[in-house]
């Protein structure tokens, strides 16, 4: 039995630029993140009104994942794709926004629509809902992208037959400082799924 897994597709978003399989496919300089990500959403012809209700971390994770999944997920059938994401700041960007809504007792209006995004795994839920991925999922927090952990965790999910393929990623967002790197690990693909290749792609 072939125990080797491959990286079949990858997407990166940082500095207002979208790279797909290493190729720059979209760029919009000199605008803030909200403007940029909305334009990226349109550029890649994503149609999903719920996108506009998401917080920034979810928007980033969603668009990066959507670019990969839109051609991979088969409509009207089960897609056994696990999602394993991690970042450094958890949901801190939205945590700060929520804290500001309760800080001033004279102007105290906690918003449920903001509060729900004060958990980092909500972005994983958003992606799962879009593609009906009733599959394995987890969210981790590390100081830096922990290639060793994520690689082993993804391999173990496939080896133990808990998932056919795994969408892995680093999705970091805090106050306009952001970086996403999402890749699909499966039984066939472009590159061997190992720490060295992932580090090379991540640091590109």
């Amino acid at each position: 039995m072939n125990t080797e897994n491959y990286i079949s597709k990858y997407c990166q978003i940082e500095n207002n630029t979208v790279f797909v399989n290493g190729e720059k496919l979209f760029e919009l300089k000199d605008v803030g993140f909200s403007e940029f990500i909305k334009n990226a959403y349109k550029e890649f012809e994503i149609e999903y009104p719920k996108f506009f209700k998401m917080d920034n971390l979810s928007k980033l994770a969603f668009v990066t994942s959507e670019i990969i999944l839109k051609d991979v997920c088969e409509k009207d059938q089960e897609n056994d794709i696990a999602i394993v994401f991690a970042n450094q700041s958890s949901s801190l960007d939205t945590d700060v926004k929520y804290q500001n809504s309760i800080q001033d007792k004279e102007n105290y209006f906690p918003s449920p629509a903001v509060f729900v995004y004060t958990l980092p795994n909500i972005c994983v839920g958003e992606i799962s809902i879009k593609h009906q991925l009733k599959s394995e999922n987890a969210f981790f927090v590390f100081e830096n992208f922990n290639t060793k952990f994520i690689t082993n965790y993804a391999n173990q999910l496939i080896k133990s037959r808990k998932a056919e393929s795994v969408l892995c990623g680093w999705v970091e967002f805090y106050q306009e400082k952001y970086k996403s790197f999402v890749y699909l690990v499966s039984k066939d693909g472009l590159l061997f799924h190992n720490e060295k290749n992932i580090n090379t792609l991540y640091n590109k």
Binding site: P49, F109, P110, S111, P112, A113, V116
Partner: peptide
């Protein structure tokens, strides 16, 4: 408009605010 349960809670905040 296709609103959901979180939107309903947000409308409650709108009334208050």
């Amino acid at each position: 408009l296709g609103l959901d349960s979180i939107d309903a809670l947000e409308l409650i905040v709108l009334l208050d605010k």
